[in-house]
Nucleic acid binder design. Sequence first.
RNA 1: UGUCCGAUGGUGUAACUGGCAACACGUCUGAUUUUGGUUCAGAAGAGUCCAGGUUCGAGCCCUGGUCGGACAACCA
Length: 566
Amino acid sequence: MTNHSEKEETKKPSLNFIEQIIEKEISEGKHDGRVHTRFPPEPNGYLHIGHAKSICLNFGLAQKYNGLCNLRFDDTNPVKEDVEYVDSIQEDIKWLGFDWGDRLYYASDYFDQLYDWAVKLIKEGKAYVDDQSAEEISAQRGTPSKPGDESPYRNRSIEENLDLFARMKAGEFEDGARVLRAKVDMASPNMQLRDPAMYRIKHAHHHRTGDDWCIYPMYDFAHGQSDYIERITNSICTLEFEVHRPLYDWYLDQIIDTEYRPVQTEFARLNITYTVMSKRKLLQLVEAGHVNGWDDPRMPTISGFRRRGYTPESIRNFADRIGVAKRDNVIDVALLEHAVREDLNKKANRVMAVLDPLKVVITNYPEDQYEELHAINNPEDESAGSRIIPFGRELYIERSDFMEDAPKKFFRLAPNREVRLKYAYFIKCNDVIKDEDGNITELHCTYDIDTKSGTGTSTRKVKGTIHWVSIDHALEADVRLYDRLFLTENPDVAEEGKDFKSNMNPDSLSVVKGYVEPYMVNAKAEDKVQFERTGYFCVDKDSTAEKLVFNRTVPLRDSWAKKMNK
RNA sequence: UGUCCGAUGGUGUAACUGGCAACACGUCUGAUUUUGGUUCAGAAGAGUCCAGGUUCGAGCCCUGGUCGGACAACCA
């Protein structure tokens, strides 16, 4: 055995810091070697690519270490939550390729247990009912550098607290009239520990428990306990919950009577250039009509990416590559685009489509004659097979593939220059026809019958190959050309008095009428193709037999355009 | 002004109990190509926030700074 291969075998795959923690726990026999994670969305919006990172992390860890991952809706605030979101979230996770088996849970499943634990805390003198308003409590909380003041209700008798809390539950009080607070430490340097609210009164209809409750637990009083109930080993969340961890542990300390205890670990959330990533901001875009719903292909939501033509594999690969760490990060959107191109290059059939048509008449091709040409569906995948393309006297080519005063390096069509029509013949441009305003309306070309594709009869070579469609056979299609939603790398940096919306790209969507080869007649929603030399496209759900609709997923890399810009 | 967290090429992530800073994206060359795509070959780009210390040896350990982030909803 060579030294080299020995090294290969012994080289450990690099682990992210959470995997290191887990492997250490396993080696120490913690949790009996179990790994059980959970993905805990609040059903108050659609999932975005940042959630995809968390989903891939939590479900991925469970897969890797032979464990389980639960789906748990964190539904403790009925005024913001809705079944629409419960449904879309499940659909998106499944689409991404993950499965929670029969472990679909809701924090609201635990409301009775949570209530009992709250009563227990009251009985132990560790919780009290506060009659003050939210404003008063807030005023007493102090600041990060100044300790808070204790509530005048902090030392009520246990009996009175028990009575008041029962009456809160019974609906005797109005929203906001009272709140149950944990008695921790108003002088704690950690603001989260300054007697945090455990329960608040909300006479609101809950999407699952209906009108059973009019008091609802806060996130902090529900989350750790839910983890505990589900026997979660690793409770993984984003960095902003780091300061909550002492409270997470404090609540657990009050209720735990086993050796087992869940551990919270935090990682940095995902940011992407030219994108905003908060549900609040995305909701604003939807509600203000800046986009057409949560699944608008310009949205960084999972449903938006799905409609845009991204594959689950590409998103999972992306999540893999960005890694997991604790420092703030901004991922270049080019990495995401690379991930889709890489996947689609292998999977998407090639098809010819002209998006900005220029008519070409092949003057030496007989009128009313047509022929069928043979085309490869995917040069990267032989099993994709081949198809037939109709060719005739009148064609469309891309306007950008013709230049009247072409530089030497322009390998496309120009007066007296020759190009190959992909899968067809060489053509030479003889005449440029213009209207009275000088706009080019038509090209007259001649073709060379000896250059037919695949015959090998041509001895000449030509530098460029362009795509085309036969006018008589092409199908008309609406093609939606999507571009980035924001003009600046960090949309949150805005001028004085303005917000992220001032950085929106006014041209993030343009719809053009294009022509595609007849092969696409039976295209179904979410079908993905590459329009040869243009980009990857996906059939939109708005598409019908009468009117095809395509969304541009991502353009092809274009080194020519790059050169032209210099 | 308190507590907690973080700092490695342009970006992101690695570097096992200290041992010549690696991989990916991006950028740039060149080759191949019936997609100016793909593929292939190659290049440039950091000496690891700063200052001390421990050590034969520090990105990793210690001390002190600097900078950045999080925390003051009856949101999650």
